[in-house]
Each structure stands twice: as structure tokens, then as C-alpha cells.
């Protein structure tokens, strides 16, 4: 057994030598065929290589300061080996894929820092113990769930490792193509069972009680809160003893200002069909959100931990608490909209 290792080493080294020789032979072959080895400008004395057309194209690119091999290498590294290879083999129980999230994080950072230049106010209200159940309640704007994504991003920047999951309305959470993508970066279909399960796991959750009505309101109704559902979020907070943090998002209404809704198209397609200044007449370009400046303001938390759990089923209590939180968010919104000078700066 002892003699095994050195005896094996020699053929291995031989193989390695062989491999190295064949690689260098291949490189020489490539260099002579395509004349790529000469990074210095070719002189007239060099023999004319074969493949004149290809060589001309190569030298053209080189003239522009671009190295074709380098370009190809960069493209190859950028492209995943196969579609889907940039995903992990494990997801959490709601489908969040940590590898995929890291992959799209530069894009989210770009949207947060450069595109919408998000300012965060009231971050002191985010102070919380680890594993404390947090329920963020926010105004909803725009069809695509950018606001949930940005709130999750803002919270994570103040509490690394604590990224809230955002709830996505039914009709959006079941759309083909969109749904798998949203689930991978932390979106979850909005229903009480899901939110409760998440809170009990000690996760933070972002809820939008306005739901569909908030997402589909027209530009002229901007920053006016719609009805807050049936107050499911209050019952939820009472039952799971979660801390409710009201959130006001300003700027998201201008990202995709909805001028009108085409009800006929909505009925035909089964999904809302908005008309914004850029969509649908600019085609896919119309899906690019406008770069309004965003402000996300976290209000003072509302505690439900001393409330008896029977109150969760008391409709009068639930509606009072619901309206109270709705009022808080509306006043935060009014203050923020009043305070901002321009939509863009």
C-alpha cells in the first residue's frame, strides 16, 4: 500500500506532460492558422496565412482594439452553461433560490441605487430582534411588483440577512413566466395561510392590503389608498403576535403611470391591460419603468402582542385596527408627497 503513491505518480506526471504538450501544439496550430499569436502588428515579411477573408475580419476587429478571442471568452463566461444552470439545487420551502437571488442582485442594486435612487426614511423603526415577526404593510402601486422588491431590498440593506418576503396578488402570482421568476426571488402568492406560515417561521413579510385595486388604480388616483380588503392582515398580526410596520412608498406610481385601463382587452386577455405613456405603443421598450425618484418611509410599528388572540375574529376590532393603520399610511404618504419637490429629483 505504501509504495502505491509514488508508483502512481509517474504515469500521472507523464499524462500531465502529454496534455501540456498537446495543448501547446494546439495553441501553435491556432496561432499559425489565424495569425493570432502576433499581438504586435504584422510585418510584411511574415508569410501570408491561409483563410484570407477570416484574417481580414480579425484584423479589422483588432484595429478597433477588440480581441476576438477575448470577446468570445467573455460572452461564453457571461452565458450560463445551459439555461437554468445558474440556479441552486436547493430552494427554500416557498421556492426562494439563493443562488439565483445573488445572480440578479446587481440588477436589483442598479434599480435601487441608480434608476430610482431610493431614499429610505424612518429606518430606526426597523430595529428588531432576530426572529421577531415583522409584517410590513404598504401602499401598492403599478402592475408589476417593483414596490415589494424595493421594500425587501431596503430592509435587507439595514438588516443584512433579514430579507422580507413580499406577497403578490393572485392574478399576478399565477401568470406564466412571471410566476416562476417571482418565486425564485422571494415573491409569494398572497393568502393568509402563506403569510401565517412565513411569520410563524420568523420571517418578515411585506403585505399590500389594497391588492388588485391598488395595483390597478389610475394615475389620477395616485397615492390615494384604496379599501384595505377585509382586514385579513390585522387578524394575521393578532394571531401570530407580529409587529406591524406601516410603509409608504412614493415614486412607484410614476414608474408606470397608468393613464387608462382597457377593459375590453382585460376581459379578452384575462390579465389587466394598462396604457401608460410608454406602453403598449413602444412595445417591449414600454416595459422599462420610468426613472422617478423613490422614497420609502417606514412608520412607527404598531404592536399587537398584548391583544388577546380572540380579537382576531372580532370584526369590529379588526376593522378599527385596519382603518387606524390605513390612516397612518395615508398620512405618511401625504407628508412624503407634499415634501418632495420634483417627481424626478
Amino acid at each position: 500500500m505504501k509504495g502505491g503513491a509514488p508508483a502512481n505518480a509517474t504515469p500521472e506526471r507523464n499524462e500531465f506532460e502529454e496534455l501540456r504538450n498537446s495543448i501547446s501544439a494546439l495553441r501553435e496550430e491556432l496561432e499559425t492558422r489565424f495569425d493570432l499569436g502576433s499581438r504586435v502588428p504584422r510585418n510584411a515579411a511574415s508569410p501570408p496565412p491561409s483563410g484570407a477573408a477570416a484574417r481580414d475580419r480579425v484584423s479589422e476587429l483588432e484595429g478597433l482594439g477588440l480581441d476576438p478571442i477575448e470577446l468570445f471568452e467573455r460572452a461564453r463566461r457571461w452565458m450560463p452553461q445551459r439555461w437554468g444552470a445558474a440556479r441552486s439545487a436547493e430552494v427554500d420551502e416557498f421556492g426562494l433560490d439563493p443562488v439565483h437571488l445573488e445572480r440578479v442582485r446587481p440588477l436589483l442594486d442598479f434599480l435601487f441605487e441608480r434608476w430610482w435612487r431610493v431614499q429610505v426614511a424612518g429606518a430606526e423603526n426597523l430595529e428588531s430582534a432576530d426572529g421577531e415577526r415583522l409584517l410590513f404593510v404598504s401602499n401598492r402601486s403599478g402592475i408589476l411588483p417593483y414596490d415589494g422588491l424595493m421594500i425587501a431590498h431596503a430592509v435587507e440593506r439595514h438588516h443584512p440577512g433579514r430579507r422580507p418576503r413580499f406577497l403578490v396578488a393572485d392574478w399576478l402570482a399565477t401568470l406564466p413566466f412571471l410566476q416562476p421568476g417571482l418565486a425564485r426571488i422571494g415573491g409569494i402568492r398572497a393568502c393568509t395561510e402563506n403569510a401565517e406560515r412565513l411569520l410563524l417561521r420568523g420571517e418578515a413579510v411585506v403585505a399590500f392590503p389594497e391588492g388588485r385595486k391598488g395595483a390597478l388604480k389610475l394615475y389620477r388616483d395616485r397615492y390615494r389608498l384604496q379599501r384595505f380588503g377585509r382586514g385579513g392582515f390585522v387578524s394575521l398580526a393578532v394571531r401570530s403576535r407580529a409587529k406591524v410596520i406601516p410603509v409608504a412608498v412614493v415614486g412607484a406610481e410614476e414608474a408606470h403611470p397608468m393613464l387608462l385601463r382597457l377593459d375590453l382587452a382585460t376581459r379578452l386577455l384575462g390579465v389587466p391591460f394598462p396604457v401608460t405613456p410608454t406602453f403598449p405603443h413602444l412595445g417591449p421598450l414600454g416595459l422599462v419603468p420610468l426613472p422617478a425618484r423613490w422614497r420609502i418611509r417606514f412608520g412607527e410599528p404598531v404592536h399587537f402582542d398584548r391583544v388577546e388572540s380572540q380579537r382576531a375574529d372580532d370584526p369590529l376590532y379588526v376593522s378599527r385596527a385596519r382603518e387606524q393603520i390605513r390612516g397612518k399610511i395615508q398620512s405618511l404618504l401625504d407628508a412624503e408627497v407634499y415634501a418632495r419637490g420634483s417627481v424626478w429629483r
Binding site: 437554468g84 440556479r87 439545487a89 436547493e90 430552494v91 420551502e93 418565486a183
Partner: peptide, 12 residues
């Protein structure tokens, strides 16, 4: 225990 997306299953 655990769940996996269909695409990941096929890749595995």
C-alpha cells in the same frame, strides 16, 4: 421534506 422546482428536478 423540502420542495424543488420542476426545472431543477429535470436538471438533477
Amino acid at each position: 421534506s423540502g420542495v424543488l422546482p420542476l426545472s431543477t428536478l429535470l436538471r438533477l
